[in-house]
Amino acid sequence: MTYRMTVSPDFSPDFIAGWYIFNTWLQNQLSEAIHLELFDSFDDQRKEIQEDKIDLIFANPYDASTLIRDKGFIAVAAPSGKADEAVICVGTDSDISCVEDLKENCNVSMADDPEVNTIGMIMLEPADLNKGNVNISELSNYVMVAKSLINQQSDVGFFLKESYDNMSKFIKSQIRPIIASEISVITHSFLVGPQLINRVDDIRKLLNDMHNLEKGPGVLASLGFEHWVNQEQEDAEFMIDLMDTLIT
């Protein structure tokens, strides 16, 4: 049997090759056939999840909720030092210096990243702004969000902090962060589906020892982090509870 693995579509394009390398490494370690399927959109991936076609997933906290509570997935690990944070930026020449400078009907650009967009909207709340009183443009990626700020089509833009950090110097010279989240507790997780339930302990041990195993550090470097940290089911459940508090 060939199992299917996927990755939340909000990962940085810089790490596409890394996920293929990781997939090969995992197949060798587990002696199981695993096909890596990457999706361009959250909708396409969620359709596959709903149809029970995914067995392993590096999931964002939003999808982790459905996967764990509705689909019986088990959390085994999270990347070390890679909490999901959001940054709100304006164009360099903007008059806006803090969130409270923003007014109703301002133009907000964002990518199709529900978690970042939720955190971003929370950071606009101190200015009495919400989805109902701002003009939202959902763009295809974070470079387009930056462009909308540079072209003055938007007043503010939301970025995944990792994506903002990885932007070119040229783009970063034309946008300016006004606030960054420091939430720390929200992170992507590696989840194992019901079809592989008998290999959960093996996968947990493998990932948590990965940085000590042959070729492990190199594979981890290609994913952009140094090691996995163990994530028990209760850790993931609590994170889902926290996400629930943010959706209000």
Binding site: E100, I122, M123, E125, P126, A127, D128, F238, D241, L242, T245, L246
Partner: peptide, 11 residues
């Protein structure tokens, strides 16, 4: 679980 965030001055 309790999560608190920054409220607006109006509120």
């Amino acid at each position: 679980a309790s999560v608190r965030r920054k409220p607006s001055r109006t509120k």
